[in-house]
Design a protein around this nucleic acid. Structure first.
Length: 272
DNA sequence: AGTGCGACCCGAACGC
DNA sequence: TGCGTTCGGGTCGCAC
């Protein structure tokens, strides 16, 4: 599942492959993927170019000059660059064809991803973007900000870390990793979180996400057939998907529980 | 408002 | 060539 580090890797890779190529046509095979007006989507894109690709939380933001194309990969969304003549895979749902004969193809086995075309001036008023919280790598992420957002909530800290309106970009993998590094039990209620906890969450988020971005993320395997980007952060995961394995600090077996319906991995000794 | 939960999807894992 | 059922996971929308 692409989280902030994975989306950043996709952004950097796509910038090398599709920037400033003129769009010739658009083929929307699965129309529910488009959250804005479909006819406008198909009409506006041809003739334009992606002049930049930005990111906000887990949202990719393709800059078309006077419009933005927003793209959320959700669980399994991927982009491929292929030749227009290549056979269309059954999981390719949106195909953007360039005048040079190549395609940018959106591939999503679960069909959970979404795209949305908006006018540039509407970005800050677009709900999906407007409600994004502060990113882990931002200097605006302080322990005071976190304490203010967290301390009155009755729900588990793990669930709070997945709330994109507080910290933007953390997903299930990095939330587990942040809580292990911060030595906080995932079930600890927001109301019991201290200012010291917030300092530890802030520091762990910055350290882990910075390193995950440096290593290209965790879950990305081969994201274009021609480029083969591989996320190399999985070697640094301490608890996530490691049920039964020894804690890297104290050797206690890692436990898997459900928190807010999500698989959650932690060390019962280090994270009291 | 805050919180909980089903729905959206379908490949993989599981049970028999 | 086994087949039917369950699970998972980011986000939204609805219920309370």
């Amino acid at each position: 599942m692409p989280e902030i580090a994975e989306v950043e890797t996709v952004r950097n890779t796509l910038k090398k492959m599709v920037l400033n190529k003129e769009i010739k046509s658009v083929n929307v095979i699965y129309s529910k993927m488009i959250d804005s007006n479909l006819e406008e989507f198909k009409r506006i894109l041809p003739g334009k170019k992606f002049i930049d690709i930005k990111r906000n939380g887990k949202w990719l933001i393709f800059d078309l000059g006077d419009y933005y194309l927003l793209s959320h990969l959700r669980m399994e969304g991927k982009y491929f660059v292929k030749n227009h003549d290549d056979e269309i895979n059954k999981h390719e749902h949106v195909i953007i064809t360039f005048t040079d004969g190549t395609d940018l193809r959106y591939h999503d086995t679960r069909k959970f991803g979404r795209m949305k075309l908006i006018k540039k001036e509407d970005l800050d008023n677009t709900p999906e973007i407007k409600k994004q919280g502060i990113e882990p790598i931002s200097n605006k992420l302080t322990k005071e900000y976190l304490y203010d957002k967290i301390h009155s909530k009755q729900i588990p800290i793990k669930t709070i870390l997945l709330d994109q309106t507080i910290i933007a970009g953390l997903g299930n993998i990095y939330a587990d990793e942040v809580l292990f590094a911060a030595k906080i039990n995932p079930l600890k209620k927001g109301t019991d979180i201290t200012m010291d906890d917030c300092e530890n969450i802030k520091n762990a988020s910055k350290t882990i996400i910075t390193k995950a971005i440096e290593y290209g993320g965790t879950t990305i395997k081969s994201y274009t057939s021609s480029l083969g980007v591989t996320g190399r952060f999985q070697q640094f995961l301490t608890v996530h998907k490691r049920e039964g394995e020894p804690c890297p600090v104290c050797k206690t077996p890692i436990v898997r529980i459900k928190v807010g319906g999500r698989s959650t991995y932690y060390c019962p000794k280090c994270q009291k």
